[in-house]
Amino acid sequence: MSGRLGGLINAILSRALAVYASLALMYLLLPIVTIAIFSFNDPVGRSNYAWAGFTFDNWLTLFRDPTLVKAVGTSLRIALVSTLIATTIGTLMAMALVRYRFRFRKAIDLFVFLPLATPEIVLGASLLTLFVTLQIPLGEVTLILAHVMFNVSYVVVTMKARLSGFDMRLEEAAADLGATPWQTFWRVTFPLILPGIGASAILAFGLSLDDFVITRFNAGQVQTFPVYVYLKVQKGIPPQVNAFATLFFMATVTLVALGALLQRRRATLKQ
């Protein structure tokens, strides 16, 4: 009797869990799905807020507004360059912080964390002050510098977690077998931390592409994708923006899925 009751409770609970999980997923996906749906909207007038009919036009005229195309290009370029720089510096910093005991290590650990905890608007404003004081003209260079700054923090935090699980004996084993420190890094350390580096890079890329507050302060005349969208709010955001946003989302999902797939294949190979 009580066994059957227990079974019933279990069934209800697991059903409830499924419902809960789908609700949570919907909560996360709904805004994105909305954006994707409205990329197929045929809006009346300038604002793309009310559904007015289905069309492929926005996708076919994706590159119609040269300002938008240029903004997307700028965003991608800045994201790519700042990700490359931040991932490299961040990975090396994380390695130093995890492996070596040196003066000011604790302090550096704290400083690295600061940009994550400081309100973005404060960071943006103070960076602007810095650039103006140093008389560095605002533009793509200052944007890249700014993005590298906050991305380094994210990379260091992610990579530190990954590296603390790294078995140092593997590097000793490589040295034992005659590998120079350089060979040890490229043949043993790097391939093993590559998944972590990939994850950090995707994170950094996404954060850079997405950043508005810091970018707005330090962009000068340069328009990135988020800045473009912001400036268009008054006059109405063209539906091509939705199409681009959908593209970005699809690209990210593909990248993450690809990464997961690669890791899974490697794992099954090894099982």
């Binding site: 078995d167 004996r169 593997l170 000793e172 084993a173 490589a174 040295a175 034992d176 077998l177 005659g178 590998a179 120079t180 420190p181 040890t184 043993v188 391939p191 093993l192 490697r266 090894k270």
Partner: peptide
Amino acid sequence: PAHQRDVNTVFQSYALFPH
């Protein structure tokens, strides 16, 4: 340094390269 010595080690934890 270790990589210049004509000595090889079998580690307690084996330390085989997993990749």
